[in-house]
């Protein structure tokens, strides 16, 4: 990328963010750490060493974005805070393995907590 020149603000930020002296380099490895961490920009749309998202668990789940990780295998794209989305998932039974569903397992789940973002400590953990 040596022949490329930043011409707008976003491009300049990219250039500033990557390693000084290594213009344009975007590199990261999950196992090799031999230099300054600032060298690494693992952008949402990049997965340097992988052909697809890395879901860090055999028992993991693969929505896009998923519950634990987003479609790139990170957390930056998750709906946040999770409490903002919680009752929506509950009412629609959207994440039935993660969030109690209102149809069967926990019809009164929201009873003690009308606003999850405020009263999140009152939310029950459900053992179906």
């Amino acid at each position: 990328m040596d022949h490329l020149k930043a011409i707008n603000q976003k491009a300049r930020r990219i250039q500033e963010h990557v390693a000084p002296g290594v213009p344009g380099e975007v590199a990261a490895s999950p196992v090799a750490a031999n230099g300054d961490a600032d060298l690494d920009v693992v952008a949402l749309e990049s997965s340097p060493d992988r052909s697809g998202p890395h879901i860090p668990l055999g028992c993991s789940l693969v929505f896009a974005p998923g519950w634990e990780v987003d479609s790139t295998g990170g957390t930056a794209g998750l709906c946040q805070p999770v409490e903002r989305d919680l009752f929506d998932c509950h009412l629609a039974c959207f994440w039935p393995a993660h969030v109690p569903d209102q149809l069967n397992h926990a019809p009164d789940w929201t009873g003690k907590c009308a606003a999850a973002q405020k009263d999140w400590r009152k939310i029950d953990l459900i053992f179906p």
Partner: peptide, 24 residues
């Protein structure tokens, strides 16, 4: 030096494991 990727993510709100005894 060596390193690994760590994801710190949200809780689970249901636990399906039949043996689980939960201290919260």
């Amino acid at each position: 030096r060596g390193r690994a990727h760590l994801i710190v993510t949200v809780p689970l709100y249901m636990r399906w494991e039949p043996w689980r005894v939960q201290m919260v």
